[in-house]
Amino acid sequence: MSDLLRLNDDKPLMIDGSLSHDLLLILSGKKAHIRYNLNAKGPWHIFIFREKTNISLIEEGLISTDSEVHMAYLDLANESFIQESKFAVLKGAGLDIKSIYLGDNNKNIIFDISNKEADTKVNIDNSIVALKDSDFNIKVIGNIVKGAKGAIHHQKSRCLTLGPLKRSLISPILNIDENDVEASHAMTSGTVDEEMLYYMNARGLDRNKALSLMVESYLTYSDELYKDFGIAENWQKEFKDREANLCLM
C-alpha cells in the first residue's frame, strides 16, 4: 500500500530516492512546489490528488538513469487548478504519466517532458471532462533532444466538453531533435454527439444517464490506476464517490 503525504502548506517538498516507492500525495494547500530526484531503480508510483481548493502545483523532476517512474494525477475538484510539470528523463529511464481531470472550473495544465538521453521512454495519457462552465487548457510539450537515440515518446490527450459554454484547448507539441526515435502525439476534443445521444435515448436512457455513461467512459482506467498505485481502500472509495457525484448531472 502507498504511503500518504499531505501537503497543506506552501513549503517546497523534495522527493528523492530515500522516500517510499509508492506515494499518495494529497494537495490541500494553495500552492505546492515539488522537486523530484528519483534515482532508485525499482518502480516509483506517485499518485497526486487535489483536494477541494484553488491551487497551483509546480513540479520539477529528474528521472535518473535506468529508473522507472509512474505518475498519476487525479483532479476531481471544481475549483480552478494550475499545474506545471517539468521532467527530464535520463538514459534508460522511463516515465509514465496518466491523468484524469474532471470538473467544472478553469484548469491550466502544462506538461513539459524531455527525453534527455538515449533509450528513454515517455508515455503520457490525459483524460479530461470539462463540466458546466469550465475553460480547460492543456499543453503537452514533448522534447526529444539531440543525442537521445532510441528514445520513445508517446502522448495522448482526450477531452469531452459538456454543454454550450465549455471550451477546451489542447496543444500537443513534439520537438524532435534526433533521428532513430519513436514518437507520436494524439488529441481529441469534442462535445457530445447528438446522434450518439439519440441512440442511447432510444434504448431507454434519459439525457442525464446517457451523459453520465459517456463521462464514466473517460474514467474507465481509474479503477486500474488506483490498484496499480496501491491506493488504500478508504481513499479509493473517496475517489469513486467524488467521481460519482461529478457524474450525476
Binding site: D193, E195, M196, Y198, Y199, M200, L213, M214, E216, S217, Y218, T220
Partner: peptide
C-alpha cells in the same frame, strides 16, 4: 446504421 459509442 447503429451508432458507435467508444468508451462505453
Amino acid at each position: 446504421y447503429p451508432q458507435e459509442i467508444p468508451g462505453v
